[in-house]
Nucleic acid binder design. Structure first.
Lengths: 256, 256
DNA sequence: CTTGACCCTCACACCACGTGAGGGATGACA
DNA sequence: TGTCATCCCTCACGTGGTGTGAGGGTCAAG
């Protein structure tokens, strides 16, 4: 029977020895056996549990909740792992997207320098237009895919803590917009416009649109069945409401 | 002149009011003006800085470091973006690794489950599980406690005929290479080169490459995300280590 | 002039560990 | 048989980035 010491576990898993002590303290991961010397000895079962713990921790769940999850007798390991897999691959896609955006931004910064010297505005604007269109395609595809994957999974059941930070922000905005609709607020009202500002800021993380671009994004929300499906599940009427609010925001605060 | 209160900033950025207070306290983000009433008022400048802060924070930088970065007058945007890019791609790779690990775990768990139902999977999963245990034993287990170098030497001497399947042989080589990395051995060292010879023999089962072809295979390992994900799951750094070892092997013992 | 939603400053609580002190156990080698 | 390095333990305080009040002032609308 394999017997791992704390150091072994630490090396195998990458967590610190102190963390393992902590997990023992709070009852999250107890050793299989305690030696007469007081040493902690773990087995294969504990190694697997630790792996589970780490996957959950990766997604930002508090240890207490992880404990509750793993100790739940109705806990399905494979299902949990598959859910993890989906979330991780969504996150990976988001990172890939951010990387692409950064690359383009760097290229743009470099291009801007030579542009001031050369004053080749035409080619630049055409290039930028193409770039922008491509960006929307990228963004659109990834966004829609992750969203649909999420709603296809048990979106309603998912605890708030399990949301990744960026997604949580988007969700928060959607929820606030839905609440605004419920409260009968107008799309051009101050509160809604503040939310749209937040939405704009969120979009700007990956891509900074000008006035027409932002309006175009809103129109894309309304015209695309995929997007519409997603938004309408959050709140009926949200799609058109948001697009209209975005139009107002763009026309009052953005430049072309 | 736009004037944002703490709440405005909080809503726009998604940060809590408390966090803004904290950022003020530590000098990371100070308000543009303080009202006679003591209220914090922020402007567009601060909003932009806050976005920068959040971007860095998302990558896990401590606030102190973010402050130092943003306050550095010689702050190079392009360099910062490139650093971002590197970190993001590292994160993306790490996610890819985790995904691969999850897939393997799921396969393992499924194997355990279907084992009772379907005997076809039985041999496969048992083999894989045994292999996994063996790898761990070799590196850290109570059996091979004598010394890593010893068990590795035995491993290296083990004739290929004793291996049940080609897959097992490959996995054994990977495990031994991982152990070599742990032992701090060099890619051009004798032991590692012996392992690469074994790897070369394995490759030759299906296809006999010449010098450049074998080097190219190594480069393919490093360049292909799929390959990289697999190798990095076995041991971080294994991909590049193996490729380098292959290059040395090819240049010293293969012809063109 | 009230009401409710803001704002402020303390100040203590929290999580998931890091860090170090002080001391025992183990095992390879001289 | 000692020696020395490397493990192991507990105890306990420190840290970062907030959350969560308490206690009290400010502001805009009705």
């Amino acid at each position: 029977m394999t017997r791992y010491t704390v150091k072994d576990m630490a090396m195998l898993s990458g967590v610190s020895v102190r963390a393992l002590h902590h997990y023992d303290e709070i009852g999250l991961l107890k050793p299989a056996h305690l030696g007469a010397n007081g040493y902690r000895y773990y087995g294969r079962e504990e190694l697997l549990r630790l792996q589970q713990i780490l996957f959950h921790r990766e997604l930002g769940l508090p240890l207490e909740r992880i404990k509750a999850l793993l100790d739940d007798p109705g806990f399905d390991r494979v299902a949990a792992l598959k859910a993890h897999r989906d979330k991780l691959s969504a996150e990976r896609d988001r990172f890939a997207q951010l990387i692409a955006t950064i690359d383009r931004t760097i290229a743009q910064l470099n291009g801007e320098r030579t542009m001031t010297d050369n004053e080749l505005y035409d080619g630049f604007s055409a290039q930028k237009q193409a770039q922008w269109e491509k960006e929307i395609e990228d963004r659109f595809g990834a966004h829609g895919r992750t969203k649909i994957a999420e709603s296809k999974a048990n979106f309603a059941k998912m605890p708030a803590e399990e949301m990744a930070a960026g997604k949580a922000e988007m969700e928060a905005i959607h929820a606030a917009l839905a609440a605004a609709i419920d409260a009968g607020e107008a799309a051009d009202g101050a509160r809604v416009q503040a939310l749209v500002a937040r939405h704009f800021a969120w979009v700007c993380r990956a891509w900074k649109p000008n006035r027409t671009a932002y309006i175009g994004l809103g129109r894309m929300y309304t015209d695309s069945p995929d997007f519409r499906a997603v938004y309408e599940t959050v709140k009926p009427g949200l799609t058109d409401f948001l697009a209209e609010a975005m139009r107002v925001y763009a026309e009052t605060t953005l430049r072309d």
